[in-house]
Design a protein around this nucleic acid. Structure first.
Lengths: 338, 338
DNA sequence: GAAAAAAGCGTGTACGTTAACAACTAAAAG
DNA sequence: CTTTTAGTTGTTAACGTACACGCTTTTTTC
C-alpha cells in the first residue's frame, strides 16, 4: 500500500491524499472523509523510510555523564546502553555528543556542558549532577528537549525521566537483607552522596522496611570515598554489638563485604548493596556480598537515548519509564546481565 | 555525509562509490583504496532510510502462539511485547500474521500452522508446541528463518532462541524458597506439562538447590489442569507431615496459594511460582503467594520480533539473548512490570 | 595490427513521501 | 458580466541509495 494506490482508489491525486494524511488544510470535507475511510479500511501506514528520507530530520543528542572515579563502573554500564542505541540509530539520523564530568569537582559539570553546547545539540540527556550547577532557566528558554537519567531537578520539567523509584529500591533491599539475616538487631546504611535524592530515598526505604516491626534498629553513616569504609565500619562495630546487616545505597558494597571477610565476621553480617558492577559481581561469586539490587543501567541508557531520538526525529510522545527493581543473588547472575 | 559528497572528494561518480560500499566488482584497486580511506576518515554511514526505501524489503513474520485456556495469561503478556514491536516496525516493512493454538489439543498446532503458511510468511516465530507436530524437515528445506521463543526443538537449529535458562530459574526459585521457609523438611514441585523441556529443567533446578545440603527432601507431582491442585495437594499433605514449601514450574502458583490459605496452613508453607500474570500479582499482594520468578514475557516477545525483523529486513546477525531471571516479592511489584 | 573481450567508470531511473507551486473551479465583489 | 478571491485539486522536484545500462579505455587474442 502506498499513497499512490490510495489516491487511485479515491480518484484524487497523491497531493490530496498527503494533505489528508498530514492534517493539512485545503481539502473538502467530502474528499477528506472518502480518503480517511479508504485509509481505515486498507490499514494503510505511510512508508516510514520514505517519510524520514524526505523529512531528513537529524537529532544531535548531547549526553552528560559523570565518569568520576567512584562512579566509573556504574556509569560505564549506562554508557554501554547509550552506545548500543547510538550504533543502532546512527544511519537513522542520530548523532551523539558526549560530555564527561566528575560530580565531586565543583564547576566540572558546567565546564563540560559549555563545551557540549558548541556542538549544535538538539536535545540533552543529563545524568546526576550538582543541583546548583544545572542551568534551569537557560535550558527552559532554549526549548530543547531534556531527559534525565537516574536523577531529577526540582522545578524543572524534562520531557522524560528514566529512573527507578529509589524508595522502593531501598525497601526491597531491606526485605532481602532481613530475609538473609537471622534474628533482630542493628542494620547499617552507608551513603556516599548523602545530599543526592537517590541516596537519601534508598536509605529511607531501607530504614522504613527494617524498622516497621519495631524490633530492629538502623544506623546511618556517611563516607567520602570507598577508602573510608574500614575505619567508619570500625567505629560502628565498636559502638554496636548486634549488627546484622550492611546496606550501601550505591555500588561500594564490595568494599564493605571485603571488610567483613577480613574481620572474619561475614557469617554474622549480611551485605546488600546497589548496582551490579564488575566488583560486585565478583563479590557475589566469592560470597563476600549476599545480594545486589540492580536498576538495569544499560537498559536505562538505551531507553533514554531511544526515547529522546524518537521524540526529536519521529515526533513521538515519550511515555515515562519506571525501571524495575532487580534482585541478584549469586545464583541468578548471568554473564552480561546487570 | 552522502555518497555524493564522498564521490566528489574522490573525484569519481556515485556509482563507483556505491560499488565500493556494497563490495561489488568493477573498481580498480587504487580507486577502491582511495574511497575506502575517505569513508574511514569521514566516518560515513549510508543513510538507512534511503537504503531501505530503495531496497524495499518486507518481512512477513508468522507468529505461532499457544492461547490454550491454562496458558492464556502468560502468553498474552508475550503477545503484548510482540504487538509493541509490530506497532513500532510496521511502517518499516514489517507485517505479522498470527496463528493461535492449544498445545493440549493434538493436531491443533498443525492445523493453525497450515493456515498461516498460506499468508506468504518470510520468517516464523514459534512458541512451545508438541514436539511431534513440529515440521522440522519442511522448515529446514524452505530455508526461511525460524526463531523460537521459550522453547527448543531437538535436532533443529533456529536463527535465534529467545529463552531463559530454565535450570537456573528453578535453582533461583529453590534459593528463594529456602530463604523464605524456616527449618528443613519436604518441598513440593508441581508440573503441568511434565514432558516440556522447560518444566522439567525448572523442577530439576529447584530440586538441585533444595537437596544440595542433604537435609531436605523434594516430592514431584503432576497435575493435568489447575482444577487438580486441591486433591493432588490433599494427597501430598496427607502423606508428608513436614512440608515447608511448594514450587510450581509455571504460573498456577496462585491456585496452590489459595489452597494453603483455605487449609489455614499458609503461615507454615512457602509458595513460590513462575510468571507474573495478573492472578499471581494479586496473590503476591494478598500474601497467598510469597515470590514469583519472572522471565520478562513482553520483553521476550518484543526481542524475538525485533531480532527476526532485523535479520530479515536489515540482514543483521542475531545475537542470542539470554533472558534474566527476575525475582518478585510483594515489595518490588511495579504496575506494568512482569 | 585489427578485432574481440574485459575492465573501469558514469548516467539515469526508481523507491514513497513531502511540500512548494501551478491550475482550475465556483462563489463573492464590483 | 467581468474581476477578484477563496477553496480545491493536480503536478513536480527533491531526499539518498541501488542497480541496470551504456560508454570509454585498456588488455587480450589470433
Amino acid at each position: 500500500m502506498t499513497i499512490r494506490e490510495i489516491a487511485q482508489m479515491a480518484n484524487v491525486s497523491i497531493g490530496t491524499v498527503d494533505r489528508v494524511l498530514n492534517n493539512r488544510a485545503g481539502v473538502s470535507s467530502a474528499t477528506k472523509a472518502k480518503i480517511e475511510s479508504i485509509v481505515e479500511q486498507t490499514g494503510f501506514h505511510a512508508n516510514a523510510y520514505a517519510r524520514n528520507l524526505k523529512l531528513g530530520k537529524k537529532a544531535v543528542i548531547g549526553v552528560m555523564i559523570p565518569l568520576g572515579s567512584s562512579e566509573y563502573g556504574y556509569w560505564n554500564l549506562v554508557l554501554d546502553g547509550i552506545r548500543k542505541a547510538e550504533a543502532e540509530f546512527s544511519g537513522f539520523g542520530l548523532a551523539l555528543k558526549y560530555g564527561f564530568y566528575d560530580r565531586d569537582k565543583a564547576g566540572d559539570f558546567t565546564q563540560a556542558f559549555r563545551t557540549l553546547q558548541n556542538e549544535g545539540c538538539t536535545a540533552y540527556l543529563i545524568a546526576p549532577l550538582p543541583v546548583s550547577e544545572f542551568p534551569s532557566a537557560e535550558l527552559r528558554e532554549s526549548g530543547l528537549p531534556v531527559a534525565f537519567i537516574d536523577s531529577t531537578i526540582p522545578s524543572f520539567t524534562p520531557v522524560a525521566v528514566i529512573a527507578q523509584n529509589p524508595f522502593k529500591g531501598g525497601f526491597v533491599a531491606g526485605r532481602v537483607t532481613r530475609l538473609l539475616s537471622s534474628g533482630t538487631g542493628t542494620f547499617v546504611t552507608i551513603q556516599i552522596h548523602p545530599d543526592a535524592y537517590n541516596s537519601f530515598e534508598r536509605a529511607r526505604g531501607f530504614r522504613t522496611y527494617i524498622m516497621r516491626d519495631g524490633r530492629n534498629n538502623v544506623v546511618d553513616v556517611n563516607v567520602r570515598s570507598v577508602d573510608d569504609i574500614p575505619h567508619v565500619l570500625d567505629d560502628v562495630f565498636s559502638s554496636h554489638e548486634d549488627i546484622r546487616g550492611i546496606f550501601t545505597v550505591n555500588c561500594i558494597i564490595n568494599a564493605a563485604g571485603e571488610y567483613l571477610v577480613h574481620r572474619r565476621i561475614k557469617d554474622k553480617v549480611v551485605a546488600v548493596g546497589y548496582d551490579l558492577v564488575e566488583e560486585n559481581r565478583n563479590a557475589l561469586k566469592n560470597g563476600s556480598v549476599d545480594a545486589v539490587i540492580s536498576q538495569r543501567p544499560a537498559f536505562q541508557g538505551y531507553t533514554a537515548v531511544s526515547a529522546l531520538f524518537r521524540k526529536v526525529v519521529q515526533g513521538e510522545a515519550v511515555s515515562p519509564a519506571e525501571i524495575p527493581i532487580d534482585i541478584y543473588f549469586e545464583e541468578n547472575l548471568i554473564e552480561g546481565s546487570e
